[in-house]
Design a protein around this nucleic acid. Structure first.
Lengths: 216, 216, 216, 216
DNA sequence: TATGAATGAGAGTTCATTCAT
DNA sequence: GATGAATGAACTCTCATTCAT
C-alpha cells in the first residue's frame, strides 16, 4: 500500500493521485485501504517522516566514520546521493510534496528537514574553521550543494549507465571542488583523501531504507 | 489573471489551486475567467511555454556575448540564475508542474526544455573539446550543474541579503570550479576571466521576462 | 430547498436524510444545492435558528397584548400551540434535531431555547407572585406545560377535525387548570377571562412564520 | 451490549451511532457483536419492543390496583412517569426512534404503542362516563396528557432534586386538574383520593424494567 | 467464540466547465 | 462582456455487514 502510494505520488503528485488509483494498484477496494491507513494525508506524512528520519540516520552514521572535514563532506554527499539514488521515488516525494501538508504535520517534517540541513551547515563550518574549505559565501554554497544533490532523484535511474556508488563518488568530487578543499595548497579529491569507498556508506543507506519498506 | 494564477500555482501547486481562487484573487467570477482563458490547463501551458521560451532566448542572447568556453559557461550560469532569481515563482511553476500536463502540451514543454539543455551540453562539450574544462563525466556534471542552478528559485528571495547579480556571480564561480576550468594550469574564475559584469545579462533577462508579464 | 429539507428532516430525521434526496425533491443536482447553501449542517442550523427566533418574537408580541398573569399564560400557550400547529414540521425539526448539532451552532440554538423558556418562567413567576396561580412546584409545572405544548407538533394535522385556534384554546384552558388559576376563589378559564380570541395570536404567528418561508 | 447501545442511541440517536462505537464501548470487535445480535436494526427493535411491552405490563398491573376512575388515572400517570423517570434513556429511545424503523418492525412497535394508548383512552372514557372527569375534548385531553408525561424522560435526572415518586405524584395531581376530576362538586386530588402511595407503583415499574436489563 | 480483513454502497462535498440571459 | 445558475464527474471517507480462519 505504501509502495503503491509512493509510486503514484512520485509519478503524478499527491493531489493528482486518487485513493481509488492506489486501491486499484494494490488490488483492493478503497474501503479496505482504510483498514491499514488513517487517511490519504497520513499516508504521505508517514512516507515523508520515515524517509527524512532514515536519511538523517544514514547521514549521521556515515559522517561518524570520517574524522576530518574533507572526508566528512565527501561522506555526507555520498550518503545523500546514495540514499536518493537507491530510492529516488521516496526521495522525490519527500522533497516535493511538503506543500501538500499543513499545520502540525507540515511543521513536523520541516523540523526534520531543518535538523538535516544543520548537519550540512556544521560540516561546512567545520571545514571553513579549520581552513580546509575556501568559499565566497557559506550559506549560498550550502544551498548550492544541497540543491545539486537533491536533484539526483529527479534524473537518476537504476536502469542507467551508473550505479549509486559511482554517482555518489562523482558528486563527492564535485562538492570538494565547490568548497575548494585544499591541504598544503593541493586540491583535495577523493583520490587523495584516503577515505573508505562509497560501498560502506551505501550499506548504511540500504539498511536504513529497508526499515521503511525498501527492498532490493 | 496570469499573475494571479502564477502566484497560486507557485504557492500551492497546480492541482491544489482552484479556479475559484484565481477568480477571487482577480476579482471576477469564474465564468468571466473563461472569457480570457481557454482552460485551467492552457493557463499553465502558457505560463510554462512562455517562461521556457524566454529563458532560452535569454540564454542564447547572453551566451552570444561571450567568445570562449569559460566565459560562455559563466554567462550561461549567470543567465539561468539571474532569470530564476528575478522571477522565482514563474521558474518554480515551470520547473515543478510538468507532471500536471500530458499529451501534446507536455511534449511541447519537454521539447523546449530539451532544447534548452542542449545549450548547456554544447557549452560543456565546447569547453571539454578545447581542453579548458576537465570533468570525470560530462553528462553527470551537466545534470549536477543544472539542478544546482534550478534550485535557486526554491530558496531565493528578493527580500534577502543578496541581489540576483551577486548570486549569479557566486554560482558562476561554483560552476567554473565544478568543471575545473583551467588555462595554462591556472584555475579560471570570474576574477581572471575578463568577462563583462552580471548586470548585462540581467538586463537581457529582465527584458525577456517583461514580455511575458513580469514587472519591476 | 429549505422547504424540501424541512419535509425530509421532519419525516426521516436529519441523519437519515441524504442531500441527494433533497436535491431530487428540488429537482436539481447536489452540486446545484451547494450554490444556495453552505452545508447540510448549515441548512439545519438556519431552519432551527429562524424557527426559534420567530417563535420567541411571536410569544413576546402576543404576551404584550395581555396585562394580567392568567391572560398572559393563556396567550403564551395560544402562541406556542398556534405556532406549532401552523407549521408542525418546522417545529418538530427544531425540537428534535438539536443533538444533530455540536459546538457553536448547538450553543447558539440552546441559547435561543433558554431565552424562550425564560418567557414561560417569568409568566409563571408573575402569576405565582400575584397569588393568581397555585402550584406545588413551579419548575416541574413549567416543564410539564412546555412538554405538553411541544407535543402538539407530534400529532397535529391540518387535515384533522380542528383548526390551530381551537386546539390553542383547549390547551390554554388545560394550562389554566394546571396552574390552578383562581380569582376570588373562582377558577379562571378562557370563558371568564375577557381576553381576546385566539385569532389575534394566530395572526402574529402566521406573519412571523411567513418571514421564514411559510406559506398558506 | 444492549446497555451500550441504549446509552449511545439515547445520547446521539440511532443513525448517528455507529456499531463501531457500540463495539468499542462493549470492548469487543464489531464482528463479535454480530455473534450476539442480528443487526443494528434488530438491536433497536428489541430495545423498543421490550420497553413498550414492560411499560404496558407496568401500566396494566398498576391500574388493576385502583378501582375508581380518578385513582385509576392517577395510577396510570404515576406508572408512566415512574417508568420514564426510572429509566429515561430507554424511554427516550423508545419514544424518539420510531422513524428509524420501517415495514414490519415499525408496525409492530406502533401496534404496541396503540394498545398502550388504549389504556389511557379507556381510563379517560371511564371517568367521563361516570361523570367524574369533565373535559372539553376527550381526544385532545388524552394527547395533552400523554405528551406531558412522555416529556419526563427528556428532562428528568436521577441526580436532580426529586426522586421518581415525587415527580410521579406531582404529575398525577396535574393530570387530575387537567381532567377536572370532581366528586360532589369538590376537586379530587391525590390528597383526598385515599389511594396507595407512589412507591407501590414504582415497585412494579422497577421489577418490569429489571426483566429487560435495568439495574439499580 | 472471536477476529482481521475485506466489501459494496453511499455519505457529504468540491471540481472545472458550460450556457442562457 | 459578464453573470448566476447549473451540471456530471470525481473526490475522500464511513457505513453496516460478511466470512475465512
Amino acid at each position: 500500500m505504501q509502495d503503491a502510494a509512493l509510486q503514484l505520488f512520485a509519478a503524478k503528485g499527491f493531489f493528482a493521485t486518487g485513493i481509488r488509483e492506489i486501491a486499484d494498484r494494490v488490488g483492493v477496494t478503497t474501503a479496505a485501504l482504510y483498514h491499514y491507513m488513517g487517511s490519504k494525508d497520513e499516508l504521505l506524512i508517514e512516507i515523508m517522516a520515515s524517509s527524512m528520519t532514515q536519511l538523517i540516520r544514514t547521514a549521521e552514521e556515515s559522517v561518524a566514520t570520517a574524522d576530518e572535514p574533507a572526508a566528512q563532506l565527501a561522506t555526507l554527499v555520498r550518503a545523500h546521493v546514495g540514499y536518493h539514488a537507491l530510492d529516488p521515488l521516496r526521495s522525490m516525494v519527500t522533497d516535493d510534496e511538503l506543500r501538500a501538508l499543513s499545520g502540525q504535520p507540515r511543521a513536523r517534517i520541516m523540523k526534520l528537514r531543518d535538523s538535516y540541513e544543520q548537519l550540512w551547515a556544521q560540516t561546512l563550518d567545520h571545514g571553513l574553521a579549520s581552513g580546509v574549505f575556501h568559499v565566497a559565501d557559506a550559506k549560498i554554497t550550502r544551498l548550492a550543494l544541497l540543491e545539486m544533490c537533491n536533484g539526483v532523484d529527479r534524473w537518476y535511474s537504476a536502469a542507467g549507465r551508473m550505479g549509486p556508488g559511482e554517482v555518489a563518488d562523482l558528486f563527492a568530487d564535485l562538492a570538494l571542488a565547490m568548497v575548494d578543499a585544499r591541504k598544503d595548497g593541493q586540491p583535495i579529491r577523493l583520490s587523495n583523501l584516503g577515505c573508505t569507498s562509497a560501498e560502506q556508506v551505501l550499506k548504511i543507506a540500504r539498511r536504513a531504507l529497508q526499515e521503511i519498506g525498501y527492498s532490493d
